[in-house]
Design a protein around this nucleic acid. Structure first.
Length: 424
RNA sequence: GUGACUGUAGCUCAGCUGGUUAGAGCGCUAGACUGUGACUCUAGAGGUCGCGGGUUCGACCCCCGUCAGUCACCCCA
């Protein structure tokens, strides 16, 4: 109630202890990507609007109604990044990366979409994703999937399923489109209102309709597998073969089509049963024509994007907190004289110990100081009062075992370093 | 963009068919315990009852609007 201005709709403030979970996840992601040979790329949070219109597709929902677009003072139309792939490709092209051979890049950061918020969907959300550019073969598809799979495995995540499909290429997709139109058009008036619209705009989208009245026509719809050209069929078979060989479980799901225009051949989703209606935690696929369509060379690529909010929701459902037990030292001074001695000591301690060093500079009773130590989850308290000061000593109290030791003031840093690091 | 439900203390929520000083628990501050924490007890601080309008002698309660939250549709990470 205090503030009259709140965070904008669909955005969230993150603060302790939630930020600890984010930091843990981000650190794990950076280590994982590095182990797979990926380097981090960071691009501007806004780009020329034209980049997304051309990259994502003019008739996609993202471009038609979800972009945060504004005109800058120079009269240029700019848009807050609604997805990362187009900007990454743009940056790689701009700096000539594609003429230096294959590129393995990853990103982590915010995206913006003007949508009505609901569980697992926000106006500012955060994605981790990778782009593997320069390999046309199924090996790259599998590498990308394996990386996402390993991230989930590292948390022992259950209830997440990999769904896989191929949506063909420029040779066979038009054929499939025609086959779908031929199948649905005769039943046009029996389809749901949404699906009638989809029929004209994007027949592929019809496949993931949830409307019950569409059900019978969906079940009898032609499968992409029947129409794939030989090259796409072989590619898909090898992706499946590699996944089998690597022991990564998956289900071929003919209804996965993806919402962005640039996908070709392999598309996949990791779906969780812990997320409600927005159940996709990670999705991606191959985009062999995107670079060329943005004016670059012919560079086949594959990648995925993973929603960090959704990933954290799964972890939360698993009971993951990111918090450990007690850690660190609460430095306590009783009185102005003790404080004058303690402050420089705290500074030295922070240089000698990796754990957090907490300090409070108010005149409080010892009791109040210890309560603060509790709230900080400190493992130890270092207590300096007038008696100790006179004796040239300080008390180290182990707050977990409730034991005290008296240390000479001169040896605090060394002793603290060994005691705290050992956690005894 | 559409729909449903919900907005009372920092948090989780009470508040009978409208009746006049709006409550509890947790948390916070202080004390019981001149200097030893997680338990306990006591006291205190903290509220334009989301906001605006209307009905009424009287509105936290009823009506309209608006904003926000939640969930779902559309769509997506």
């Amino acid at each position: 109630m205090a503030s009259t201005i709140a965070a904008p709709r669909g955005t969230a403030d993150l603060m302790p202890p939630a930020t600890a979970r984010w930091q843990e996840l981000e650190a794990r992601i950076h280590r994982l990507a590095r182990r797979y040979g990926y380097g981090e790329i960071r691009t501007p949070v806004f780009e020329a609007t034209e980049l997304f219109v051309r990259g994502v597709g003019e008739t996609t929902d993202i471009v038609e109604k979800e972009m945060y677009t504004f005109v800058d003072r120079g009269g240029r139309s700019m848009t807050l990044r609604p997805e990362w792939t187009a900007p990454v490709v743009r940056a790689a092209m701009q700096h000539g990366l594609f003429s230096q051979g294959p590129q393995r890049l990853y990103y982590i950061g915010p995206i913006f979409r003007y949508e009505r918020p609901q569980k697992g969907r926000y106006r500012q959300s955060h994605q981790f994703g990778i782009e593997c550019a320069g390999f046309g073969g199924p090996e790259a598809d599998v590498e990308v999937i394996a990386l996402a799979w390993e991230l989930m495995q590292s948390y022992g995540m259950a209830g997440v399923a990999l769904h896989l499909n191929s949506i063909g290429d420029e040779a066979c997709r038009p054929r499939y489109r025609e086959a779908l139109l031929a199948h649905f058009r005769p039943h046009r008036s029996e389809l749901s209102e949404d699906s009638q619209r989809r029929l004209e705009r994007n027949p592929l989208r019809l496949l993931d309709s949830k409307a019950p009245e569409d059900r019978p026509f969906l079940d009898s719809a032609p499968s992409f597998a029947d129409v794939l050209c030989d090259a796409c069929r072989a590619h898909f078979a090898r992706v499946c073969g590699y996944l089998d060989a690597m022991g990564i479980p998956y289900a071929v799901d003919p209804r996965i089509v993806r919402g962005l225009d640039y996908y070709t051949r392999t598309v996949f989703e990791f779906v969780s049963d812990a997320l409600g209606a927005q159940s996709t935690v990670c999705a991606g696929g191959r985009y062999d024509n995107l670079v060329k369509s943005l004016g670059g060379p012919d560079v086949p690529s594959v990648g995925f994007a993973l929603g960090l909010e959704r990933f954290l929701m799964i972890l939360e459902a698993m009971g993951f907190t990111g918090e450990g037990g007690r850690d660190g030292i609460q430095a306590i001074a009783l009185g102005a004289d003790a404080r004058a001695t303690l402050v420089p000591l705290v500074a030295r301690l922070r240089g000698a110990v990796r754990s957090p060093v907490f300090a409070d500079y108010e005149d409080r009773k010892l009791l109040a100081h210890l309560k603060l130590a509790d709230r900080n989850h400190a493992r130890y308290a270092l207590i300096l009062g007038s008696d100790e000061l006179a004796a040239g000593e300080i008390i180290l109290r182990d707050l977990e075992r409730r034991r005290d030791e008296r240390w000479p003031l001169g040896s605090v840093e060394e002793r603290a370093a060994s005691v705290v690091e050992e956690g005894r």
